[in-house]
Design a protein around this nucleic acid. Structure first.
Length: 820
DNA sequence: AGCACGCCGACT
DNA sequence: GTCGGCGTGCTC
């Protein structure tokens, strides 16, 4: 009896949001839920994922198309992966295809190639007629193309372009092809092939024993030195692949002759593509400290139990959270279960990677954005087939197809990079918790400064709270000196670097130690303003001030990368008094060079880290002592553990404090704490100087005393008063349009719809519409509508019925992290 | 997303 | 009268 498969077609569109039914043909009767298949869809052939199987009815037999092919020879999606994908689509209001697709490498498992061929209906006679017609006609080109395709068979557009590049222009070639398609002389023929297939290589080995082989070769009349040498090498190495043969300078021809004689076996073996495989990793193997043992004493039994449980591991900076992760992972691996370790950004956390590689060698697979599709496919396949058991990667690694998941670690749980800012707008922590529930795994959320939401959940008992309160070897946290920049100004000191910070730096250098300086702004000056009329120079395409970059003396927009020349006078009032305001990393670099001419400065921000490994290069050079100062944006505050860093300077702690975002205080607190935590991780005490215009702000105060608890208590009160998360949940609906008034009217219409749909729901409010804080980005106007609710699932259900997410020009962000 | 179907303006 | 614009709707 034939079966019907419910298939999600992998097409990147928001308005198909359901499964389609296909007949499973007899020769694929064995395929099941979770398999990736190829199906006909409209005129095309696309990839699909089977999410259900049911019995056939008589009506189906004729109405449905059959599955054409399969992509793998196993079910790609395990059961809990399917459930997680389903949850993802529902929770974040995205299409099913978009959601399931997260679990495959790349966007699609198949690629299509459009070829042009002569339509089947065109006969020889017709061709002859066309040839005749082209003689006295001025469209000779048409026939030239037809003739060429007739001779060569189906061709790609690019091949046709190449052939006629001297005689027919590209645009007229396309026009001719269009018209031939219309006349049904040509037709499209799409070739579909699977992408991301395993790469195979042929391996050769002896098929008979050595004596037989040598005798057989010698039995032929002539001397065969090359063949004999091949046998010799095969005896030595057992088997050889083509690259080894090349190294031994044995030609493929020699091998083929022996294969023909039946003396050598060939075998296809998969090779793992990994351009990073031969990098060396070294890290000390450490024994857990007493504190770590105590924490592990709570985590390990949970892992052994093979039941879902989540932990919040709050450990001060430098307390050795990584060691806890390693031991927890070891426990899961000993049970034969797999582990996913998420880090905020793989480039900034090479130290964690080294530690894991040193502890687990090839059992670790590192996923990062630089991997090619093939490499990613192989990495995932190794986990899929249980050849490796540990994956380390940034947020998307949460979708690794590990079927036997026992542990998920999220390091620096509070980091905003765990939220994806494009569809599906998921938060890796939510996905991790859901995935872990479905697969009965343990989750460890680690941070020195947990997000307010997570800590609140832990206090409510949703996560078990475990703490590391002391740094390794009980090194004290560095004392923080707060410099009130208003006082500095009052005393006539207008420099970017206060005397206190200057003193700290010179003392540090005199001892041969290193400093990290954090400034949350790149560029030279952050904005340019006319002193007479107050006009600020903004980007033409975005509603944001242009930033002056000294390197190429131009103004740049940090949102769309557009450049502008620096005007001589104000474009509004014509005044020549225009001034640069604010301070960026470039300006600080300049100031530091003046103050400390002998100091070597490494600047690390988006402008200096464009290359692939430039992050790591700068960090490792700094760690080696090639620089005295590491100056940069927030990326200098994270992850690294360099013993010789004893001083940390925070130039302006409040830049993030004044953003129109209810999480501004939290961001500021955690950034300062993380930055301060870079100081004094070795055996020498550290020191921090913090410059601010808001020294009395509770976020700054508690950060300066490394006091998370106090910060949390103040912040949670504010959140409760203002009814913000974690007391409510938010959904942001952003209306996009190139036309401002259109965006406005659409937003108003949506608010009206929402009011109607959400009528009668308690603890639910609609805020807005209001222009997004950055109201224009790349020429697109953005208007926000914010929903605040204590009944997220009900609101989500009703939104889902409205089908808002299938409309174009609307972005729905569930649990948004910023509404900028 | 593609691609067909379908309804209105500018041309041989 | 036709060709061709792209607005709407469907794809098992």
């Amino acid at each position: 009896m034939k079966k019907i498969a419910q298939v999600i077609v992998n097409i990147p569109t928001r308005n198909i949001d359901k499964a389609f039914s296909y007949i499973i043909p007899d020769h694929y009767a064995y395929i099941d839920i979770g398999w990736r298949v190829i199906v006909p869809f409209g005129q095309r052939t696309v990839e699909g994922f089977i999410i259900n199987i049911s019995d056939i009815s008589e009506r189906d037999e004729t109405a449905l198309k059959p599955i054409t092919d399969i992509l793998d020879d196993f079910a790609w999606f395990g059961n809990h992966m399917l459930k997680t994908a389903e949850w993802l689509a529902e929770y974040y209001l995205t299409s099913l295809a978009e959601s399931y697709r997260m679990f495959i490498p790349g966007k699609a498992g198949v690629k299509t190639q459009e070829l042009y061929k002569i339509a089947d209906s065109v006969s020889e006679v017709q061709l002859a007629e066309l040839k005749e017609a082209s003689k006295d006609n001025d469209n000779k080109d048409n026939f030239k193309i037809i003739e060429h395709i007739y001779k060569k068979g189906p061709l790609k557009l690019s091949e046709l372009r190449k052939e006629f590049r001297h005689t027919i222009s590209d645009s007229s070639l396309e026009d001719i092809i269009k018209s031939l398609l219309r006349q049904k002389i040509l037709c499209k023929h799409s070739k579909i092939y699977k992408s991301g297939l395993p790469r195979l290589t042929t391996v050769y080995s002896l098929a008979v024993d050595a004596a037989t082989a040598i005798n057989t070769i010698n039995a032929t009349s002539k001397r065969k030195p090359a063949q004999l040498r091949l046998i010799e090498e095969l005896l030595k190495y057992n088997s050889l692949d083509s690259s080894q043969l090349r190294q031994l300078s044995i030609t493929l021809d020699t091998v083929k002759r022996l294969v023909k004689l039946g003396l050598i076996h060939t075998k296809q073996v998969q090779i793992i593509r990994d351009s990073y495989a031969d990098r060396e990793f070294s890290a000390p193997k450490l024994k857990p400290t007493q504190d770590q043992e105590q924490v592990l004493g709570q985590i390990i039994p949970a892992i052994l139990e093979k039941k879902f449980k989540s932990f919040l591991l709050r450990g001060v900076t430098g307390s050795g959270k990584t060691q806890v992760y390693i031991e927890a992972v070891r426990t899961a691996r000993n049970l034969g279960r797999q582990a996913i370790v998420l880090v905020p950004e793989i480039a900034l956390t090479s130290q964690i990677v080294s530690r894991f590689k040193a502890a687990f060698n090839n059992d670790v697979v590192v996923i990062h954005s630089r991997l090619s599709l093939g490499e990613r496919y192989d990495a995932w396949q190794r986990l899929r087939c249980n050849q490796a058991g540990i994956v380390i990667g940034a947020r998307s690694a949460i979708f690794t197809p590990a079927d036997n998941l026992g542990l998920i670690v999220i390091d620096e749980e509070h980091e905003f990079t765990y939220k994806q800012e494009e569809a599906p707008r998921y938060h890796a922590k939510e996905v991790a918790l859901t995935r872990a529930k479905f697969s009965e795994a343990v989750v460890i959320l680690g941070s020195a400064t947990p997000s307010v939401e997570t800590y609140f959940q832990a206090l409510q008992g949703e996560h078990s709270l475990v703490c590391l309160t002391r740094r390794i070897d009980s090194v004290p946290l560095p004392p923080v000196t707060v410099v009130d920049m208003r006082n500095e100004l009052a005393q006539g000191r207008r420099g970017v670097i206060s005397p206190a910070m200057q003193d700290m730096l010179s003392e540090t250098f005199s001892k041969g130690e290193q400093a990290v300086i954090l400034l949350n702004r790149r560029g030279y000056s952050t904005f340019i303003m006319c002193r007479e009329c107050g006009h600020v120079i903004k980007c033409h395409h975005c509603d944001i001030a242009m930033v002056y970059h000294a390197a190429n003396t131009s103004l740049r927009c940090h949102y769309c990368q557009e450049r502008q020349a620096i005007p001589d006078c104000c474009p509004v009032c014509g005044s020549r008094y225009i001034r640069y305001f604010g301070t960026g990393t470039q300006k600080v670099e300049e100031t530091l060079t003046q103050l400390f001419p002998q100091a070597k400065i490494a600047r690390m921000d988006q402008d200096t880290t464009s290359g692939k490994t430039s992050h790591e290069k700068i960090l490792s050079d700094f760690a080696k002592g090639s620089y005295d100062i590491l100056l940069g944006t927030q990326m200098v505050a994270k992850g690294h553990d360099i013993k010789n860093v004893t001083a940390v300077g925070i130039i302006s702690a409040d830049t993030a404090l004044n953003l129109p975002d209810f999480r501004a205080a939290e961001r500021t607190f955690s950034l300062i704490t993380q930055a301060a935590g870079r100081a004094g991780r070795g055996n020498r005490p550290g020191k921090v100087v913090l410059q601010t215009y808001n020294p009395e702000h509770f976020g700054i105060l508690s950060a300066s005393t490394h006091d998370y608890e106090t910060f949390f208590r103040s912040e949670i009160k504010l959140r409760e008063q203002l009814d913000y998360p974690p007391f409510t949940q938010l959904i942001n609906i952003c209306v996009l349009s190139k036309d401002n008034t259109e965006a406005d009217s659409q937003a108003k219409a949506i608010v009206a719809e929402l009011k109607c749909t959400l009528r009668g729901l308690n603890h639910t409010s609609i805020i807005g519409p209001f222009p997004a804080p950055i109201s224009k980005k790349k020429d697109v106007y953005r208007i926000n509508i914010l929903l605040k609710t204590r009944q997220l699932s009900e609101v989500r259900n009703r939104l889902s019925e409205l089908k808002l997410h299938t409309r174009k020009g609307i972005i729905i962000d569930v649990d948004p992290l910023n509404v900028l």
